[in-house]
Design a protein around this nucleic acid. Structure first.
Lengths: 210, 210
DNA sequence: GTCTATATCCTGATAGAC
DNA sequence: GTCTATCAGGATATAGAC
């Protein structure tokens, strides 16, 4: 079990630095200083290893989102927009800050997965997102009842896209001059910046409030 | 020259469906019904083929952006936010609609490249974006003078992220239930939806106007 | 559980005839 | 310009000793 977790950690980091297909099992086992065959013993295949990486992180992350949403929904109905957005974007961004446990690497990897056309992963990840997707769609619908479902759908799509780009992180292609990209910009500040941006985008009329 | 363009077209499509590393030269030459050695004769290497694909599309696309910005800047100063955003997001989205010339495939590929950690491409693409990046940063700064540079940087970062996600297209992972993802949603409508979202995000106070 | 050795296949690239 | 044939290396996966 120790070896298994060690492989997960090292693979997670390497996968976050290079694409899945460009990262070989040999590179992983060499970096982890374990035998090549250990991966097949513990996971069965490279794809199964990737599955395990996503499952380990996504389950608690999305459970945290649902927990925050539960708390909000007993307190308010409907949930105020700012709080709703924050409960959705904060868990992944906070996980990305968790360098001690490798969360930073995983979130980078996750951000890329949103746009990567690797079919074998898409289905697996979609399943791990199902409850979050349903619950939040209903919650946003309750908070923004004046939007028709199609318009709401598109705005949520834009929201997910913005978040995904933030997750893919500082090693992403920087089209905008990066003189202001300072590492000192901490996670709570980023969460607030992003939340303000999304409030404006999701509901222009509500942007002035809060 | 005919073979060369044919290879470019076929490669562009295959690269948009699978990641760069998972798409082999053999798959490309088989689909294009040309000889494997033809790629090396016309381009020299797989990486050089990828360069050529990006150069062919990115140069006119960004020239179009700068052309629109030029036109706007002789007409207004500063350029209104909505028009500025539209001039930035429309060229790629319109290109994505150009199925006759394969623009749809390229834009999908481009959307992914924003978050993919393939170093050899990043530098090349960044160079092709340099003038656009500089000009637009100045234009947004003139339109939104009340934002300090760091805040503006982050909002533009969010904007690019949202656009990138839209470009990566309908085959992207759909976390939000896709019942409303109808293909009939045409490009002009998407441009307007996205522009309205971005107006709200970039400048909440201006969202109510326009 | 861990390791060595190996099977099988696919990759990008190139040499050289036509 | 196009083709065949081939090289050299790296990939995943597995069989079997310890």
């Amino acid at each position: 079990m120790d070896t298994r977790n060690h492989i997960l950690n090292v693979a997670e980091q390497l996968f976050s630095e290079q694409s899945l297909s460009r990262t070989s099992l040999r590179a992983i086992t060499a970096a982890a200083q374990v035998n090549l065959a250990a991966v097949h013993y513990h996971f069965g295949s490279k794809e199964a290893l990737v599955y395990a990486i996503f499952e380990r992180r996504l389950k608690p992350m999305n459970a945290e989102r649902l927990h925050r949403l539960d708390t909000l929904e007993v307190q308010y109905r409907p949930v105020p927009l700012a709080a709703l957005i924050r409960s959705f974007v904060a868990p992944p961004l906070e996980l990305s800050r968790d360098r001690a446990h490798g969360g930073e690497h995983f979130i980078r990897l996750l951000g890329r997965t949103y746009t990567e056309p690797t079919e074998f992963l898409q289905d697996h990840v979609r399943t791990l997102y199902e409850s979050v997707s349903d619950r939040y769609q209903a919650a946003f619908n309750a908070t923004l009842p004046e939007l028709d479902p199609r318009e709401l759908y598109w705005r949520l799509h834009f929201m997910v896209g913005t978040l995904a780009y933030c997750m893919s992180g500082p090693n992403t292609m920087r089209l905008i001059a990066s003189s202001h990209l300072t590492e000192d910009d901490n996670t709570p500040a980023l969460i607030e910046r992003l939340t303000r941006f999304l409030i404006g985008g999701l509901n222009p009329a509500a942007a002035l409030a809060d």
